[in-house]
Design a protein around this nucleic acid. Sequence first.
DNA 1: CTGGCAAGACGATCCGTCTCGTCTCGTTGC
DNA 2: GCAACGAGACGAGACGGATCGTCTTGCCAG
Lengths: 204, 204
Amino acid sequence: MPADPARRNDRARRAILVAALELLAETSYPELTVERIAARAGVGKQTIYRWWRGKGAVILDALVEAATAGDGSVPDTGDVAADLRALIRATVAEFADPRLSATTRAITIETLADETLAEQVRDRLLRPQLDAVRSRLEAGRRVGQVRSDVDLDQVVELLFGPIYHRWLLRTGPLTEAYADGVVDLALAAVTPAAPADGRLDGGR
Amino acid sequence: MPADPARRNDRARRAILVAALELLAETSYPELTVERIAARAGVGKQTIYRWWRGKGAVILDALVEAATAGDGSVPDTGDVAADLRALIRATVAEFADPRLSATTRAITIETLADETLAEQVRDRLLRPQLDAVRSRLEAGRRVGQVRSDVDLDQVVELLFGPIYHRWLLRTGPLTEAYADGVVDLALAAVTPAAPADGRLDGGR
DNA sequence: CTGGCAAGACGATCCGTCTCGTCTCGTTGC
DNA sequence: GCAACGAGACGAGACGGATCGTCTTGCCAG
């Protein structure tokens, strides 16, 4: 007896997603319950459980909906260094913003507790964003601004990893200067050996 | 009326920590409740609440106890590249191990939901480990194996960030080859320019 | 007239506090 | 020395409150 999506009330669906995001911004995460979402949305609890597995799935849908709104691709001015600097600055600013940070924190908690949800977060939310950065790096590689002997997925993680690390573990401030530092280090790792002959390190 | 630590029953304390770690390895995290810990440890719930703020604090203490057992310092063979390779391989192996990964996942969840606990995790669990790596990098800097114009804390994050990122978001496998890739990239970022004459890393 | 809807009752579970009666000790008076 | 005392931690579990996820009811739309 799976519910029939054709008969779904879109009004209720949107009200639920909006209510979830609102409550996420107003209250701490443990206080965000399915019952409160239902009450805020003016909806029966069953309407939530009929279409979602729990609050984690609701939040994921809300975030996906919000993320899909924008373009998603990384600007390309022809200068990888400048583009990455702008991108990472924006990313760090997002993590530093209490509002956005709260939603990220919430979905991360769910991710850690529910493997199935984690896969969906990865595929529907993260992959598109990370792939966009990867694409920008590929373009940079084609014009010789990025070494050709590195795994670009690892470079993407080299950029975002430290930021997640600092955000997650609160080991330091998330400032613009920090963002620039991350980019500088990453660029030092992937910029081709400019002088004379190539051949940097010993490789894998 | 804060409890008197002098009268504390160490037998109960250890039983609680052991029970917490055992349950953590056996069941999913939401199923790890204070009641179950108490039951498993053969202890009253109040004995837990008397000394800890909740299950998160219990897990933290258990992890700190386990971590404090070892030395904690990073070996120094004189070769930064080799030492980091061994260290990061071991770290990746830890994150790849389901048993250890489960405890890390649990404490991370608590960290995200409780700011106070997050600070304690950072100061009591993470800082010592990260500082040990930093110290090793400082030693490497003194012998010219690490650039002198980089923030070593950022270099530490450059090493661990990608690993956390991949573990947290499940974006790829945590293999030995991956560990080596992370080290290679980080080394490329922090190895001195080494102009003209030799002096590179080149592995052991 | 089928099926989603809002509303909310329901049993189960866990929370964190509280209340028992027991036990471990350090203190005290002899 | 050495019992009696008493403060406080202990095991056990009752308790009210909150949330979970399911189930029931009646309404409404297609």
